[in-house]
Design a binder for these strands. Structure first.
Length: 131
RNA sequence: AGAGUAAGAAGUGACCGGUCGCUCCUGAUUCGUUUCAGGGGAGGAAAGUCCGGACUCCAUAGGGCAAGAGGCCCGGUUGUUAAAGCCGGGGGGAUGCUGCCACAUCGGCAUCAGCGGAAAGUGCCACAGAAAACGAACCGCCCCGGUCAAACGGCGGUAAGGGUGAAAAGGUGGUGUAAGAGACCACCGGGCGUUUCGCGUAAGCGGCGCCGCAUGGCAAACCCACUCUGGAGCAAGGUCAAAUAGAGGGCCCACGACGCUGCCCGCGUCUUUCCGCUCUGACAAGGGCGGAUUGGGCUCCGGGUAGAUCGCAGAGAUGAAUGACCGGAGCCACAUAUGUGGUGAACAGAAUCCGGCUUACUCACGGCUCUCGUU
RNA sequence: GGAGGGGUGUCUGAGUGGUUUAAAGAACCGGUCUUGAAAACCGGCGUGUCUUACGGGCACCGGGGGUUCGAAUCCCUCCCCCUCCG
């Protein structure tokens, strides 16, 4: 638990959350490399000219209320921000929340995101020892 | 201090500090969209879109019709051309309970509202009932005719009684009568008038006078009178403005003609020129029709699409910003000097802005009731 | 964000104040016909609740409230669905 807090501190101050450009969404979806957790679904692709970018898609059909949609979107962004340094360089992901994200905390979403990344084999295991 | 209730009254607020992160603004800084510093950053409902306004464009001399909306009076508030809404007070009603033996009705209490007009007109009032509205006769009662007596009959009288209905033509008592009836009388109720009767700012109430007083309900049916309203909406609208196509102006090249020359090249000028058919005509020349050539490049102008930007804000985007973690107040539960655990909220997330209404809903303060203690 | 239209049995759907018998069709069930089926014809057929049952009563037209003697219908409010506007 405290270890997670330390690794958070190692994120560079200049870190910024980049976003995927519009045509890249279709490129990533067409590759069909997916990984599912209880709270999210993830599309993975390795794109040139971009390093570890994220896109978040929240459908009104999955989450009805606008407030819960905002909550889910922010949780996925935060989970990605705090875990970005553990991803393999060069990959980009699109995150889509699932119904199970309702009522979950940030830690639970982060753990679920990590499991999905390991399954997609984009998790950098060389830093496991620090956790 | 404790407990509880209720209107889900009206009202106020949505805790503080630190670290990381996001968005916008300002000022420095940087090759830069980088970096640094400072500052702003969801709600009471942001919702539903039920009303109104600001604002924008369109329309518009003036007036009327149509259509839509509103509803007692006074004051205040937000807002305003004016209304609506909300708050307080008042008036007159409706419904329920209750009191008077009962009825019309009246008194008391509680609740409610969307409170102009039903003799301006039209329409409707199913079923039942004789009758549901330019004042009604089914039964009954009375009278007359008829008969021994009945039955029966009357373009007869009668609204007291029965019966129907949501609603039946003022109520009670008496006089009166063939029987009855506001036909007449007393009381109650009602209608009309009261510009100069009194009280009240007013709605209205009381008094007085007149009327025996037939003329029901529905206007959230059409409607009448009064008051108000032009239409559409930020996806309104303004500005800038690719590419493609088209239109126009200018320039250059090519083509053609003419000239500088006898020819070519070159230069200059003009721009439609050339061919076929046909008409006028001796020819030249001119007119008409058809076809070919009017190819390429550059540039300008107009309109305006994609797009951008403004509109747009002391939050503010257009692939759409408010999050995470730690700690402390606060709250809850358990044992209880204190500690542990949980929670740190419910409803819910701005998209031009503001006000009202409606709906969803948590906690604290405030408000009400009860109990205990102290002064 | 703004503008407009709609909601009636299982389905499609009429009904614009009056026991509306909540029409009609489809679907479903039963019967006639057929060796059997289809088609045709005849009859039945919404849900909930009360009632021992048969028979029947009451309520329900998206939810709630109001106007009226009486509401699917008129009025207010909420919920849901659909269409259009760059």
């Amino acid at each position: 638990m405290t270890g997670a807090a330390k690794t958070t501190g190692t994120v560079p101050v200049s870190f910024r959350l980049p976003r995927l450009a519009a045509p890249l969404y279709r490129v990533v979806f067409d590759q069909q490399r997916t990984a599912h957790g209880h709270t999210l679904a993830m599309w993975v692709a390795e794109l040139p000219d971009s390093d570890r970018r994220v896109g978040v898609v929240v459908s009104k059909r999955v989450i009805r209320d606008a407030c819960d949609r905002n909550r889910a979107k922010r949780l996925l962004r935060e989970a990605f921000r705090l875990s970005r340094h553990r991803l393999k360089p060069g990959v980009s992901v699109i995150l889509v929340p699932r119904v199970g994200i309702g009522g979950k905390t940030c830690r639970e979403v982060m753990r679920d995101f990590e499991r999905a990344c390991r399954r997609a084999k984009i998790w950098d295991k060389t830093m496991d020892g620090t956790g």
